[in-house]
Nucleic acid binder design. Structure first.
Lengths: 103, 103
DNA sequence: CCTTATCGTAAGCCATAACTTACCGTAAGT
DNA sequence: ACTTACGGTAAGTTATGGCTTACGATAAGG
């Protein structure tokens, strides 16, 4: 549904890399931040974007926040892309049809 | 393979919309440009990005260039996303395993 | 040839977004 | 209560990228 947010969320390299880290292993913010050359607030901002895109979700554990994958965002992109195979083939068939009519 | 270029190519709204138009129907540059509120050179630049991401390919017809869908880029994104289901599940299982060991 | 149509590229401008430092709130430990 | 750990948010800076105008290159048509 919100495939646009999910796609632009994964467009940024460090944010995509962050998402991959979370996919490998759910983790908290500080622990994720020290795996990147950017500051912790930068990671927080990236996580906010990923969360709004429904690519990750949080699980609160005391003062820590464990981020883990949310499959909703991934599914949104996937179904968006799947829509193209049908559409593309349909449009291509229609185009052949049209060219035949225009002989 | 080059999923990163494909993803960031589809991140821009007008470029994604342009890609959708081409998916509906292969078309030349000028004809595509007049369907958008931006200038023709802007469309050319978008097409260049889409082409480098292997989302579209060109077919030269005289002085015109017919742009049509290239499925390589779509396939690249799709397989990148598919890689996550396995990885995510594997990582999740590994996490459970780890927590058990840490009892 | 000369003109016209079509399109790519270069240079520059401007808006957005990624990053930094600084600050604040909250939860847990002593 | 005080301190410490953890992390979100605000404000400001900088870099990236999308847009425009101007120009050049090529193919078709008369």
């Amino acid at each position: 549904m919100a495939y646009d947010k999910a796609i632009s969320a994964l467009a940024d390299p460090t944010r995509r890399s962050l998402f991959e880290k979370i996919a490998e292993r759910p983790n908290n913010v500080a622990s994720l931040a020290q795996q990147f050359p950017v500051s912790r607030p930068a990671i927080s901002q990236h996580l906010k974007v990923l969360q709004e895109a429904q690519l990750v979700k949080v699980q609160i554990a005391g003062t820590r926040r464990i981020y883990e994958i949310d499959h909703v965002g991934l599914e949104a992109i996937k179904s968006y892309l799947d829509g193209f195979w049908n559409d593309a083939l349909g449009a291509f068939a229609a185009e052949i049809h049209k060219q035949n009519r225009e002989h």
